[in-house]
Computed example of a mutant assay.
Amino acid sequence: MTPATTTELDVLGALLAFDFIGFAQKSAALDPADARYGQAVGCAFGLAARRRFPRGAHPEEVRAYVARFLGSLEAGAEDFDAAVLEALIFAGLDGDGGQGPGLTDPERTMQARLVLTLRWVRELELGPEEQRELLAQAGRRVAV
């Protein structure tokens, strides 16, 4: 794994562990100008999306999920565009580790991927060992 991949997965790991100080510290080391920025988190996001929607998803299902997701946020829903979240989920389901259609802001894309991955890990009730395996699997896929 590259240092950038390791750092991204460390950021996601800290978030999943609710280590918000570690999350903030590790996030500061990320460089949105790096050509590989978001790749490792994108891979973990795609893996989590395929676990959350194991048989794929129809547009109506994703639209309803996004509406429930946004409605459940106590604060910050205004930071996310529903259509972009839908496109992001479909890109993850399709195995697109890059930017899906309409996803032109790498920092917003990263933020959305992090929040949705956290949400799916909680919904799927993945314990610490399963979380480590998800991160390791993402690291292996990015390294290929």
Rank of each mutant, 00 (worst) to 15 (best):
T2K: 06
F23W: 08
P3L: 07
L85Y: 06
D94K: 09
E125W: 04
F18A: 11
G13P: 04
F90W: 05
A64K: 07
G42D: 13
V41H: 00
D10L: 05
E78N: 06
V66E: 06
A28Q: 13
L15Q: 11
E78P: 01
L16R: 02
L93T: 15
A138C: 05
D10F: 00
A77Y: 02
I21T: 14
L116F: 04
K26N: 14
D94W: 05
F20H: 09
Q137K: 08
G76Q: 11
D96C: 10
T7M: 00
L93K: 07
V84A: 12
R63Q: 14
A49S: 09
L103C: 07
L124I: 07
A112W: 11
V41M: 02
L47E: 03
G102Y: 03
A4K: 05
T2V: 01
W120F: 09
A40V: 06
A83T: 15
A83S: 14
G22L: 03
H58C: 08
L93V: 12
E125N: 09
G95T: 05
F20S: 08
G92N: 05
D10K: 01
Q137Y: 05
C43D: 01
E60A: 10
D96F: 07
A75Y: 09
C43I: 10
A49Q: 09
V144G: 09
R52W: 01
A48S: 08
G102V: 06
A35R: 11
D96Q: 13
A17D: 13
D81Q: 12
F23G: 05
